[in-house]
């Protein structure tokens, strides 16, 4: 990719996620927690996976080998909050940007015109379109999160790393007289990371050595999805299994070498 297309950001804080695939059981609790936390309405047709409203989904990976070598893995996929997002620069109306400290890619629903160009740009399918009018079963509307706005039909939305929780954490820090830009690791955790029963999802500031993600992201078992494209995701994955790490990217050259 040409240098002119890269947008370089420097942020003091770089919120990041490190997901340990070897610990993920594929239970889907993160998906449910995300849906409840972020006011994602139920899919009117749950079998229509192509119009799934979920911000976080779990992919099933297979090593495509027969028993007894057969192996599977589960890969939860939030928004990668790319360091060089493919989506933000294409939006015609500045509805999505990567301009805030922390590096979370924003999505402003009242600005979005629903052209879906960002969805065409994102190779991770992290962005979903609101195909339906949001409808909650009676009584469930009482459980909506007041810190997350509801979205109308016809706009694009995506995972925000539960950005509102960061806002809340900053307010708490200010009340205690602490520096809101230097939060404790436990002060701000997205719903998916909080709920994960096996502790597979780690979250924190990738620039802060006091946060565990700082160390985990530098592990020899860490990888990011589609690094070849130059998107520079802020979501890392961990696996001790070679075949899992290999499925994190497309490897044209390596295969060529192997065949020759």
């Amino acid at each position: 990719m040409s240098e002119s297309m890269r947008i370089h950001h420097h942020f003091e804080i770089r919120w990041g996620m490190v997901i340990d695939i070897d610990k993920c059981t594929g239970c889907g609790a993160c998906v449910v927690a995300c849906q409840a936390e972020n006011n994602i309405p139920p899919n009117p047709d749950p079998f229509d996976r192509m119009r799934d409203p979920h911000w976080l989904i779990v992919y099933k990976l297979s090593n495509h080998k027969k028993f007894p070598e057969h192996d599977t893995a589960y890969l939860p996929r939030p928004c990668m909050q790319c360091g060089n997002p493919s989506c933000a620069s294409v939006c015609p109306v500045i509805a999505t940007t990567k301009d805030e400290e922390g590096g979370i890619v924003s999505q402003i629903y009242p600005r979005c015109i629903g052209c879906r160009y960002c969805m065409a740009a994102c190779p991770y399918h992290s962005r979903v379109f609101n195909w339906f009018d949001p409808v909650w079963p009676e009584g469930m509307d009482k459980t909506l999160t007041p810190f997350v706005s509801t979205r109308p039909r016809g706009v694009v939305e995506k995972c925000t790393f539960c950005h509102h929780r960061w806002q809340i954490a900053k307010e708490e820090a200010r009340k205690r007289g602490e520096n809101p830009m230097h939060l404790d690791e436990q002060a701000y955790i997205p719903a998916c990371a909080e709920v994960c029963p096996t502790g597979a999802i780690h979250f924190g500031d990738l620039h802060n050595p006091e946060h565990i993600v700082h160390k985990l992201a530098r592990s020899p078992y860490a990888f990011r999805i589609l690094e070849n494209l130059g998107t520079e995701p802020q979501v890392y994955y961990l696996s001790r299994r070679d075949w899992v790490r290999k499925q994190g990217d497309n490897h044209f050259r390596q295969e060529e070498k192997k065949n020759s």
């Binding site: 500045i94 805030e100 924003s106 806002q167």
Partner: peptide, 10 residues
């Protein structure tokens, strides 16, 4: 101060 979208939008 920053005028980033997410500073004030949710």
């Amino acid at each position: 101060t920053s005028n980033a979208c997410y500073l004030c939008h949710k």
